[in-house]
Design a protein around this nucleic acid. Structure first.
Length: 534
RNA sequence: GCGGGUGUAGCUCAGUGGUAGAGCGUCACGUUGCCAACGUGAAUGUCGAGGGUUCGACCCCCUUCACCCGCUCCA
């Protein structure tokens, strides 16, 4: 498909989502709000179906581990607002709440308090000392060296000469300069002066205040990820449940990030829903479990009905790893807006012992784990008392598969969207896997008379107890089929003249539009079976 | 955050400095015999928002917001 056609797919999908009640712009009557979306009547059904599938595959029926037994997994629903120290320990505050400056020319972003400046002075060949301007370099041991190099480069362009190195103490923090001076500074890589913005607070966390008094001491944050909830409750879970290493804690919930540029429909929004699992294991086994979850997670995405060719793994390079991660792989999807490229879908990170260690340090609470099984094993192996004591108590490593529920909704919609101008009835339809379809079955009388609506309503009253159904007696049968196709309803059953004679009805399948006669007393079982098909 | 584009009915989109339009969709009634059938009728818009110019602005100007595209960002 051409790039243009790909873009159109997104436009058509967004339009369908609005028209049929999947996704609306949030607070639309007030002009909307950048980065926020509401899930409509069908959207919330779809989202819940995907959410339930994840929860079931993680918590209720977790996968079989390498030892042939189901892995140990528990669920959690932690608070969105936690003690703000949480985010200091996690590394989300600190580096990211400091003022930043952008270089408009080079597009580089610097921490304002990491830039040091001084006036570059050059002694020309004729002995004159000239000022070249305020130069900024990154602070550090090499700051003076860097400054001289930078000044020298500049001096050459303007006739050369000998740079007069500044004293270390002459280097002034960018943040200490008055705003007028800041405007005259040359950025570390800029080819002209005055391309740096004024320092701006740059923190992707939403802030709020707990309690009625709004001051520094009451400041709190909306969580930028659910994962910290698992770490905060690690001790609670170990103490109050019977889980043993290795085990996982799974959580689904909203997270908030004040993204610089929300973009691409619900792909990057400021309020979103995450599905994260923290797998706690012995450091020696972390790599094994990393590989295990990598495969398991890919299987789950495929179970949503996503085609193989639209999914792939991508290992992170060392230089793009997060501050906490030793190893990360992304599961990527070929979105219509990234195609032919792929875009991020889920990250599986080897976080080492970073998080628990951080929280242990900041909270002063012990967050290590006493491994009784390992202790016994070491004893059997004849290890020394010291070795046993030292080895059987450790801070677990963590493998984290983290995915976006709202992103999963987008993927299922992209994957299901079909447009076929030659199709009879609905040109557009959603080929959603039955398990995830918002409405499972449409129930219609062929015509709204001769006892048919009475029979269809009776059937509806029975079937709706088992799965989501819609009963519709109005308008032509073709129109009712088309409407169901457009929202991805996999089956429609129709009561016709024959039903009145022989108690059979037709079942119409969405994708192939084929029809089959099934007897009225078998229809429930028939549908339940086809709806649960893998 | 920077640059470009768009904004008119639920959706897709025409339109003119002088009282707002189409197709589709929605609803009602009639009709109906398996794929958006047909007939009749109906509802719906502060023309994204705010300000300005003008006798008069959906149209021209300014500001702002939202969406799309390209950079940037995405711990």
């Amino acid at each position: 498909m051409s790039e243009q056609a790909q873009i159109n797919v997104m436009e058509q999908l967004v339009s369908l989502c609005k028209r049929r009640g999947f996704v609306y712009p949030a607070s639309e009557i007030y002009g909307g709000l950048n980065g926020f979306w509401d899930y409509g009547p069908l959207g919330v059904l779809l989202k819940n179906n995907i959410r339930d599938s994840w929860w079931r595959s993680m918590v209720e029926v977790p996968p079989i581990g390498p030892d042939g037994h189901p892995v140990d997994m528990v669920g959690l629903d932690s608070a969105i607002i936690q003690n703000p120290k949480t985010w200091v320990a996690s590394g989300h505050v600190g580096g990211f709440s400091d003022p930043m400056v952008d270089d408009r020319e080079t597009k580089q972003r610097y921490r304002a308090d990491h830039l040091v400046c001084a006036i570059a002075k050059v002694k020309r060949k004729n002995g004159d000392v000239q000022e070249l301007g305020f130069l900024a370099v990154l602070d550090g041991d090499r700051a003076v060296n860097d400054f001289v190099k930078r000044a020298d480069k500049l001096a050459r362009k303007t006739g050369g000469g000998e740079i007069q190195p500044p004293e270390r103490s002459e280097l002034t923090l960018f943040t200490k300069l008055d705003p007028e001076r800041q405007k005259q500074v040359w950025g570390p890589e800029a080819t002209q002066a005055g391309t740096l913005t004024e320092p701006r607070a740059f923190n992707l966390m939403f802030q709020t205040y707990v309690g009625a008094i709004q001051d520094e001491t009451s400041k709190a944050y909306l969580r930028p990820e659910t994962a910290q909830g698992q770490f905060l409750n690690f001790k609670n879970i170990v103490d109050t449940t019977r889980v043993k290493i290795p085990f996982g804690v799974a959580q689904i919930g909203k997270s908030f990030r004040n993204e610089v540029t929300p973009r691409n429909f619900i792909f990057r929004s400021r309020e979103f829903e995450q599905m994260e699992m923290e797998w706690f294991c012995h450091p020696d086994e972390a790599r094994k479990w990393y590989d295990f979850w990598k495969e398991e997670r890919m299987k789950w995405w495929k179970s949503l009905g996503v085609r193989d060719e639209n999914l792939r793994f991508r290992d992170h390079d060392a230089d793009e790893l997060s501050h906490y991660s030793k190893m990360t792989v992304d599961i990527e999807y070929k979105y219509p807006f990234t195609a032919p490229d792929f875009g991020e879908l889920e990250g599986i990170a080897h976080r080492g012992c970073y998080d628990l260690t951080q929280h242990q340090t900041h909270s002063g609470q012990k967050l290590d784990y006493f491994d009784q099984e390992l202790q016994l094993k070491l004893k059997e192996q004849g290890a020394s008392a010291d070795e046993i004591k030292q080895k059987s108590r450790y801070i677990p490593n963590v493998i984290e598969p983290a995915s976006g529920l709202t992103r999963a909704v987008l993927v299922v919609l992209c994957e299901a969207y079909r447009r076929d101008p030659n199709r009879q009835g609905s040109v557009e339809y959603l080929s959603i896997k039955p398990q995830f379809a918002p409405i499972k079955c449409g129930i219609f009388p062929l015509v709204n008379k001769e006892g048919m609506p009475e029979v269809s309503e009776k059937l509806y009253l029975d079937l709706r107890k088992h799965f989501t159904c819609e009963h519709d007696v109005k308008q032509s049968i073709g129109k009712r089929y088309a409407r169901m196709d457009e929202i991805g309803t996999p089956f429609c059953v129709t009561i016709d003249g024959e039903t009145m004679k022989d108690q059979t009805l037709t079942v119409r399948e969405r994708d192939a539009m084929t029809q089959e006669r099934v007897s009225l007393d078998k229809i429930k079982g028939y549908l339940l079976e086809r709806l649960s098909a893998e």
